[in-house]
Design a protein around this nucleic acid. Structure first.
Lengths: 237, 237
DNA sequence: CCGTCTATATATAAGCG
DNA sequence: TCGCTTATATATAGACG
């Protein structure tokens, strides 16, 4: 993009290459961040320059977590590393044992992820299925608890906010009462029947606050007085 | 870019978010590749969708190598491990790396089994849940296929048995016919109207076969003519 | 989900300081 | 390396099949 077209091959001019690297690098990092935010995705990006300098981006600045997550997906490469080690000769018995355990775990991992199932018998499949069902129950229960906790926390916060508003309102009322009293003291004509300006202000404030919500809220959640469940989901982002 | 401007915030509309994710993802991967080629850089990119699916790019398709290179840069927690290792000499390094991996895998394993969930964030729990759901789908589909195969196999066997019975029957009939013929030859009284014993045998066999089933078979499976329902029961888990 | 189309928004090559 | 400008190449939002 730019004045001239660019072939997809190494830029031979060192200066140009460096400049392009610098520009494209920032563009790439920017876009990585954008997709992460816009689409609620988790992104990890590593760029090593020719000279070996590292530039990185990670959603929520937590590269480690993402890499661990990646490891759950990755196994093929790991297998290569394992055999790689093997070719270097088995150093010690313990080391070899470790490798065996690793392989077993990797295989299990794959099975837990629903991959590489061809080697399993019917019975094993059924056992695995049951295992996962049980695990899912635990996980869901845990998740529900976490959600409930957050929910309670938010409810408390909202109550507190409401209390403070209440307090403010009372104070304003008290002020008005005092002003009224003073007016009565000055002349005996009644002004009690006129609308109270401060009440209107308070009312407007609440209305405005109520409109900060997203317009696209799904119907099934609009009644929830505390937290839409689909929103709670993103609190920990 | 495009018809409308876009705020850098989560796209609330689920459809749009998905579409945008798809488009930007491919754009990002493309640009990662471009900078890698143009500027002779080494790039690793991982993108997890909201639903937990992984998309990745790595220069020369060698993610593992880049991750290892990354680890050399990353220090925080790893520094501790690294110095620990260095003091023990270089060959132990591989060994210790193996140990670290093992630990990670073990931890994952526990998570997959619904254990040790307290260390997980809400988001991670949700990712895990989705992961297991997907895995379960694969496993069930695999199991279904396995069952179907067995089913077909058994069906074939039964057909074969029936064929053999048929053959026997025919042979008996032929025999009887011959005996009759001989009887007729001896005296001219007819015995054609009497019931055929072989037919009864066949009927009894089928009835007995139908009763091998478990008595507690759920209703919905009692019609299955081939596969014992207690086995079929596990198809849908 | 994938591909196509179009109008627009962005990214960036080139050049200069 | 960095900023800035401009002309252009690309990316992509939105709509549709």
């Amino acid at each position: 993009m730019g004045r001239g077209r660019v072939q997809l091959k190494r830029i031979e001019n060192k200066i140009n290459r460096q400049v392009t690297f610098s520009k494209r690098r920032s563009g790439l990092l920017k876009k990585a961040h954008e997709i992460s935010v816009l689409c609620d995705a988790e992104v990890a990006l590593m760029i090593f320059s020719t000279k070996g300098k590292l530039f990185e981006y990670a959603t929520d600045s937590c590269m480690e977590r993402i890499l661990e997550r990646y490891e759950r997906y990755s196994y093929a490469e790991r297998q290569l590393v394992a055999t790689d080690l093997e070719s270097q000769g088995s150093w010690t018995l313990e080391h070899a044992k470790l490798k065996v355990r690793l392989e077993v775990l990797q295989k299990n991992q794959r099975h837990f992820m629903g991959e590489d199932l061809d080697t399993l018998s019917l019975k094993e499949l059924q056992n695995l299925e049951h295992q996962l069902e049980t695990a899912l129950k635990h996980i869901r229960s845990k998740k529900d608890k976490a959600l409930q906790e957050q929910n309670n926390l938010l409810a408390k916060k909202i109550k507190q906010i409401e209390k403070e508003e209440e307090k403010e309102k009372e104070m304003e009322q008290a002020q008005r009462a005092q002003v009224e009293q003073e007016n009565n003291d000055l002349n005996s004509s009644s002004v009690l029947s006129q609308p109270l300006h401060s009440l209107n202000i308070s009312g407007m404030y609440q209305a405005a606050a109520g409109h900060e919500d997203n317009d696209e809220t799904p119907l099934e959640n609009q009644n929830n007085p505390v937290m839409p469940p689909w929103m709670v989901r993103h609190i920990n982002g």
